[in-house]
Write a protein that binds this DNA or RNA. Structure first.
Length: 588
RNA sequence: GGGCCCGUAGCUCAGCUGGAUAGAGCAGCAGCCUUCUAAGCUGCUGGUCACAGGUUCGAAUCCUGUCGGGCUCGCCA
């Protein structure tokens, strides 16, 4: 139940009634009209901007228009007070019963409170992580992984049909380098002295086990073959090994994908099954691909610029700054060409809404990809690219780097092992994706208010603890949501309690807004705020024993408060589930 | 030089797609607490929302320009 939607609908009805009565002109555009929570409780519960937004179009003064609307809204039995304020705001104060009803609904819905109605079409594809299969995941990958996962969960909770996808970059030159690196480890496993890993190969010792597996399965059979002979086999084995490792890392984070899509699979075995070739030819037929020359980059002096004719995609027709090459000088496809075919595949698989989660260093790639999606879907597909900024890893404020195991970066696994999955997930999402993130390894394991992970989980544990306490004090009390929902919720009259009930009422709206803007961090901030309000109320019970949730001498108020606590707990659990963090029963 | 992102309190950051007097936490200051689960609670101090214009009834939010920081710039991925 979303009271904001409910009242938007009622407002729309009021407006059309006024139109029918000839009091205001027909055909007003309602797009900018919103019903939103007030910031200041003195302004009531709901704020409506309709009079100000519509005044000009209606040819009326805002306040005159507001008076017409207020007169109608005041007749609503759920409205206690409707008044005009400031430049023409309509502020509604609702009957307390409205909120007790919302609370009751939330108690019964439990963790389903806030879930959006199924949206059906369009199906949404969220592509995230997509780390190259050339080594373990590092911390930066982890941010994209958590962000994408939380965004997908958020969209699913909001009612969308979501598919989580991983794009395996297994077709570029880097996987050949990987294969050569693995081959060296294979020779090493056969007992050969390989010395230092040459420059340009992957030095990480995570390839040792790939080499050992190859030695075990093939013995010395590969050693004396020519590279063109062993490379495909070794490459396949190495990619499989790397993907297994990456899946392990993802599993440690609790991140799942439904689809692992191989870049190499786009290239097929012959010309006919080659999706990249097909895509480009299709674009060529529509005159979106041509042979031409690019101007050199502006302002840069570059002696090694070589003017050359190449195969180009008309990205400029779709909003990009320059046309983009599809073939390398050696005749093979650019990464971009493969990516066009890949996004076309998403579209033909039924996803007209696509979201890609990338690292910030790919920012310069966004325009061309969006251009390509427009071209290849004939304007039917929509691509949103979410860029995740860098993560700075700190320990007690000091920046940490270097890891012997992996070469030059801290692996995600090391961080998860040190601070735990929940801390990693919550902190990665407790910031806007487009802002750099400081992650302090020391802080996130503190048991204090400074540590938001602890703070939110503790609030949930406290709710659970209250229920344990209640079961002891009132052993015969039925604590099921069905029974609690029947309690006299009108007994919840303290300002703090009402404030929290309003937050619970606002939860569905927050979910919708966060999903619409693809901003899962809002969910993390919301649960943090709710936790804060709840801790504060809990502490009020110190000075005012009558506010304690479990009151030995007052069975009725205890029932009402337990219903309330159940709703708080459910919303915390629901929000944490979206972020992918566990909601513990107790803190240990 | 072009493109994209960022600039909000001393510090770290929110700001609900343009709403009312810009909010938290930390730090600082003043009190309180030892509990239904201890790791805290309440209050105070603190801002020219980088700067200058513009659009609007209304701008931290949208547009233009300037300054500062980051990323990026035909064949890598």
């Amino acid at each position: 139940m979303n009271i904001f939607e409910t009242f938007s609908a009622r407002l729309a009805a009021v407006l059309s009634g006024l139109v029918e009565a000839g009091r205001i002109p027909a055909g007003l555009s309602l797009a900018r009209v919103v019903v939103e929570p007030t910031k200041d409780p003195a302004h009531g519960d709901l704020a409506i901007n309709a009079a100000m937004v519509l005044a000009k179009e209606a040819g009326m003064a805002p306040r005159a228009l507001a008076e017409l609307i207020v007169a109608e809204l005041a007749k609503d039995s759920d409205v206690l007070k409707a008044e005009i304020a400031g430049p023409g705001f309509i502020n509604l104060t609702l009957q307390p019963a409205v909120f007790t009803q919302v609370l009751k609904t939330a108690v019964l819905a439990g963790t389903e409170h806030g879930r959006g109605a199924p949206k059906g079409e369009p199906k949404v594809n969220v592509e995230y992580v997509s780390a190259n299969p050339t080594g373990p995941m590092h911390v930066g990958h982890g941010r994209g992984a958590v962000f994408g996962d939380a965004l997908a969960s958020l969209l699913a909770f909001a009612g969308h049909d979501v598919t989580r996808e991983y794009y395996i970059n297994d077709a570029g030159a880097q996987v050949d380098v990987l294969a050569r690196s693995a081959f060296l480890r294979y020779r090493e496993a056969l007992g050969e002295e390989i010395g230092a890993i040459p420059e340009g190969l992957y030095p990480g010792d995570y390839l040792v086990s790939v080499g050992e597996t190859l030695a075990r399965e093939h013995g010395p059979a590969l050693r004396d073959k020519a590279e063109w002979d062993w490379l495909p086999l070794v490459r396949g084995a190495a990619i499989d090994g790397m993907m297994a490792m990456i899946r392990d890392d993802l599993a440690a984070l609790g991140v799942v994908h439904q689809v692992f899509f191989s870049e190499r699979s786009l290239q097929g075995r012959d010309g006919n099954s080659n999706a990249v070739h097909q895509t480009i030819e299709e674009l060529r037929v529509r005159d979106l691909v041509y042979e031409g020359r690019l101007p050199p980059p502006k302002g840069q002096k570059d002696e090694d610029w070589e003017d050359r004719e190449q195969t180009l995609f008309r990205a400029t027709q779709f909003g990009d700054d320059v046309d983009r090459p599809l073939l390398k000088s050696d005749g093979s496809y650019t990464y971009f060409a493969n990516d066009i075919a890949y996004h076309r595949s998403k579209f033909t698989r039924g996803f007209s809404e696509m979201i890609d989660v990338w690292g910030a260093d790919h920012g310069g790639y966004v325009k061309r990809m969006r251009a390509a999606v427009k071209a290849v879907t004939d304007g039917q597909g929509e691509l949103d690219v979410k860029l995740c900024q860098l993560v700075r890893l700190l320990r007690n404020g000091e920046q940490v780097r270097m890891s012997k195991r992996s070469g030059d970066f801290v692996t995600l696994r090391e961080v998860i092992d040190e601070v735990g999955r929940d801390a990693v997930r919550f902190m990665m999402i407790f910031r806007k994706n487009d802002a750099t993130l400081d992650f302090d390894l020391a802080k996130v394991v503190e048991q204090s208010k400074d540590n938001p992970v602890f703070y939110v989980q503790y609030a949930h544990a406290r709710c659970a603890s209250i229920f344990r306490q209640a079961a002891e004090v009132f052993p015969d009390l039925d604590l099921s949501p069905q029974t609690l929902a029947q309690a006299d919720l009108g007994l919840l009259t303290d300002e703090s309690e009402i404030g929290i009930v309003k937050m619970i009422a606002a939860y569905p709206r927050m979910i919708d807004a966060a999903a619409a803007s693809h901003e899962p961090h809002r969910v993390a901030f919301f649960v943090h705020e709710l936790a804060s309000a709840f801790h504060s109320l809990w502490n009020k019970g110190k000075d005012s024993p009558q506010l304690r949730f479990v009151n030995q001498t007052d069975r009725k108020s205890t029932s009402a408060r337990l219903a309330f606590v159940h709703a708080v707990r459910s919303v915390l659990a629901s929000g944490l589930a979206v972020v992918g963090v566990t909601a513990p029963e107790e803190m240990r």
